[in-house]
Design a protein around this nucleic acid. Sequence first.
DNA 1: TAGATTGTTAATCGATTAACAATC
DNA 2: TAGATTGTTAATCGATTAACAATC
Lengths: 219, 219
Amino acid sequence: MREGDKPTVISKQALQRLPYYIRFLRGLKEQGMRIIAAPAVAAQLGLNEVQVRKDLAAMSNSHGKPKAGFIIAELIENMEEALGYNNSDDAVLVGVGSLGRALLGYGGFAECGLNMVAAFDADPALTGGRICGKPVFPMSKLNDICSRMNIHIGVITVPAAAAQAVCDELVKAGVLAIWNFAPTHLTVPPDILVQSENMAASLALLSNHLRQRLREENL
Amino acid sequence: MREGDKPTVISKQALQRLPYYIRFLRGLKEQGMRIIAAPAVAAQLGLNEVQVRKDLAAMSNSHGKPKAGFIIAELIENMEEALGYNNSDDAVLVGVGSLGRALLGYGGFAECGLNMVAAFDADPALTGGRICGKPVFPMSKLNDICSRMNIHIGVITVPAAAAQAVCDELVKAGVLAIWNFAPTHLTVPPDILVQSENMAASLALLSNHLRQRLREENL
DNA sequence: TAGATTGTTAATCGATTAACAATC
DNA sequence: TAGATTGTTAATCGATTAACAATC
């Protein structure tokens, strides 16, 4: 990894592990620790040692010290920079049903670099006011507000049937990445990213495991 | 796939695609369609044709007809059975904060085979009543209720700091699978499944994509 | 020095995609 | 029959894990 060559490619999987590392390392730092070795991280997070070694090596600007490990504060800094936790991305949320409200009220996004600035809803009864401190606008304002505020992330928490239409509007308004909580596939232009939060998929894994466990017991 | 040999192993990835197939196929059925071919499914869901062909072949009890396709109703039935959508699993939820409430109120779990029967919280001010029709009990009742009702799935929506303790209690109470919404790693015995709903990980992918897109524009 | 840990190359694994014969 | 679609074997790909030399 050459100096100044920041755009090192990080694999999708590794990228998803970063938040776990960051959270764990922050905890260590608060406890006053200064140095940590990869095997200790692996043990705590239930990961393979080689994987952690590779991840840390890829993320850290400086090298780890054999027999000692990595400087915690530096690791945190490098990882946070890689994820852009420092400069938050502004986002809008569409659909202030129960899930939408829960997300608007969740304080944890700030420390993950996400800043919800406004919400939208098709129901006039829900717009005009504020929810959890965020203004709620009618859908007709979406394009105008997103363009003017230069919003790049859209969060979709509408019913499945409405999701594709909302998605199209967000893309038209200049959004580049979509966080989709509606249980449906969204079609977008090739340069737009859709990240679907996939509750039904998770449930599929859960109940499949359960069925196998219970079947085993019955043998 | 021999007849009666139901426990065919389905890959984790394929399992997660099933809910999408089911949703899409149900839509077709409602429109009155009777038969669908793999390439059409692939195009609609943005998947590879071979992948869909394999998935459908693996799920369908009967063979697809060359030149025609598969019988929609049968596919739906076979997939729903594979995921156990027919006989719901009972679950309890721990932590009735904003996210916990949103999940309790979400009606969509029923059709995914999940049935939330009760909630728990450490805060006495929140217990004793009902939220979205579900009774909310104090933590002290958790073991008793879970064992008596033979609960196998626990949903964790408490803050990260409390999650491991809650997880331990759920496992002690006989839960076999855990759906974790707290942003932290949970350590469990080897035969227990933890499925973490990984918002920070999703955000990592989103903001990474965004940064690359914006970097490209600046070149 | 001895031993734990790092960094890296090679082997393995799981899943996706390509190629193609079989079928209606 | 001709052509679209299925089912399956082989090739490819990405990521994980194993093996091992380099380092403090």
